[in-house]
């Protein structure tokens, strides 16, 4: 195992790093809540493991809502109800009996605005492992270091682990939040417009990071930036008004889409 593989092994639950991360099967997923009765309608997606899948579409089309189904964050919405199924590695995500906290440890999430906790850099990354019951300092140190290395932040923060995370730049904060998600050793990473609040250089670093991370995790990214979707993703789903209009390889979607609506959207004629 080379250095990189050792890092990945340390940051995932897989002993064999060449083993791919699991895929996600979405079948007939619909979601309603009082303000939005047709938030999602009959979504069918087969998201392959170890790849980056981008979800694009106009504002309010349900991209974020779809993403939040994968780790059941929509549960926090009042009056929200699902139908259909999402299968992750044999686990029925939407089953009411599913342990949501255990699910969220397998499916990490990165938000639009960097949201580090008001505590030290070290404590931010150690938060998830601590919640998961890791107590030994040595073990925590290792997890924190490998997560920060994998998130390409270690060299910048290794001498200031006890400083408050708020002193970091926005771009650094977003990578810290990614490290925080990685430290829980998830299988899937959900990213909800992870670069939309960042400057171009920080955006580039996040995109490079996504490319690096896809060999270890299945990544689903929501973005309103067409170029970004084209740059980082292997597959792209175009959503409109809560329905999947088209889902195919990113190359196909951006060069030769099957649907007229998709072409209109990515060429900027609509949305």
């Amino acid at each position: 195992m080379d250095h990189r593989e050792a890092l990945i092994a340390a940051s995932t639950n897989r002993s064999n790093p060449s083993e791919a991360a699991p895929g996600i099967e979405v079948k007939g997923l619909s979601l309603t809540y009082p303000e939005e009765p047709n938030a999602l309608t009959d979504i069918n997606l087969s998201i392959p493991g170890g790849e980056v899948t981008a979800v694009i579409g106009p504002s309010g089309c349900g991209k974020s809502t779809l993403l939040r189904c994968f780790n059941r964050m929509n549960d926090m919405l009042e009056g929200c109800s699902y139908s259909g199924s999402i299968i992750l590695n044999g686990l029925d995500v939407l089953d009411p009996a599913t342990d949501v906290t255990a699910l969220r440890r397998r499916v990490g999430m990165v938000f639009q605005q960097p949201n580090p906790f008001p505590m030290s850099i070290y404590e931010n990354v150690a938060y998830g492992p601590r919640i998961g019951g890791v107590r030994r300092r040595r073990e925590l140190d290792e997890v924190v270091e490998s997560a920060l290395r994998l998130a390409a932040l270690w060299d910048e923060v290794k001498d200031q682990m006890n400083r408050n995370a708020i002193v970091l730049s926005l771009g650094q904060q977003q990578r810290l939040v990614i490290a925080r998600a990685i430290a829980v050793r998830p299988e899937v990473l959900l990213m909800d417009e992870p670069a939309s609040s960042l400057d171009p250089i920080s955006t580039l670093r996040i995109e490079e990071l996504i490319y690096e991370l896809k060999q270890s995790y299945t990544i689903v990214i929501v973005t309103h930036n067409m170029q970004q979707a084209a740059r980082v993703s292997d597959r792209t789903a175009f959503l409109n008004q809560g329905r999947v209009v088209e889902y195919d390889s990113t190359d196909k979607i951006f060069t030769n889409p099957a649907e007229r609506a998709t072409e209109d959207y990515i060429t900027g004629r609509y949305g």
């Binding site: 780790n71 964050m73 926090m76 906290t101 255990a102 699910l103 969220r104 440890r105 990490g108 999430m109 938000f111 605005q113 949201n115 580090p116 906790f117 008001p118 938060y127 998830g128 919640i131 998961g132 939040v177 925080r180 998600a181 829980v184």
Partner: peptide, 17 residues
């Protein structure tokens, strides 16, 4: 901000944690 609570919940923390 709500993002703070969501960030914690998304890491598998319960409401009281």
């Amino acid at each position: 901000p709500l993002a703070l609570r969501e960030g914690s919940r998304a890491l598998g923390a319960t409401r009281s944690e």
